[in-house]
Amino acid sequence: MTGAITTRLFSSLLVVLGSSMLVFIIMYLLPGDPVLIMLDGNASTPEAIASLKSHLGLDQPFYVQFYRYFIHLLQGDFGVSRVNGDLVLPKILEHLPATLTLTLVSVSVSLVVGILLGVLSAIHRNGVIDFAARFIGLFGISMPAFWTGILLLLLFSIQLGWFPAMGSDGWKTLVLPGLTLGLIGAGFIVRMVRNTMLEVLGEPYILTLRAKGLSERSVMYGHALRNSLIPALTMIGLTVGELLSGTVVTETVFARQGIGRILADAILSKDIPVVQGVIFFTAMIYVLTNLIVDISYSFIDPRVRRSQLKGGV
């Protein structure tokens, strides 16, 4: 088990490093001279441009720049923002908690709403609840975050005044953005849970359980649901990526702090070190979440635990 986790950790590290390198290459290949952009093409002599270039190491060939970037990264040095000279790492660490909290709340909303509606929908197959749940699921998947966000904002903040429209202090500011993002994930999970529940309910062992005289409640929640959760969990691992990209829009709509908004600003001003830093952390969160999901399989499904024990080095 520990061996399996170590292997996974190692491969996760490779994924994070690989994605950082990919971003470096993409940013390198993008048109536009970062130094000229920094200087706004103005008030600068060719000497000034050259000196700034060499100061930033941008006069070096690609492989030297890449090597330097990589070595610095391994040492935990993310560089400084080209816009205002802020250190990238502290800047990201300052804004990361807000994004993590939002992601956590959204994942919780996705899980609770998704599993609840999915189960209800499967139990009351083709009933009103089923149709309503599927409608909400479809709504969550198909509506872009900024649209859902603005609808929720108009209704619950501006019309009804229940929750603040902006800010990042306190749980109240988390409700609307959490719902906005959570509904996206919930949409996927509702459909997933409903389908697997229906599939599981058709399995012969459910018939056996019922024949043994187990209560319907125990059949549903003790056996059918538990067996339907694995695909839902996998889904969570995948939707975290979706949620993280959704934070870019959601943080802007609800004027929240977070790395999504920093990323958007950095891309617009071609602040490459900041973009790279944020991508690094985003990749890290994504990989870690999927690792946790993988590990949690073994808690839910004894078969996975056993096979990992056998196969583990």
């Binding site: 501006i158 603040p164 902006m166």
Partner: peptide
């Protein structure tokens, strides 16, 4: 000074008194 880039949020917040 609050920094609110989205215009619907910004204008809506004045209308709702936030």
């Amino acid at each position: 000074f609050k920094i609110v880039p989205e215009e619907a949020t910004r204008i809506g917040s004045v209308q709702s008194g936030q």
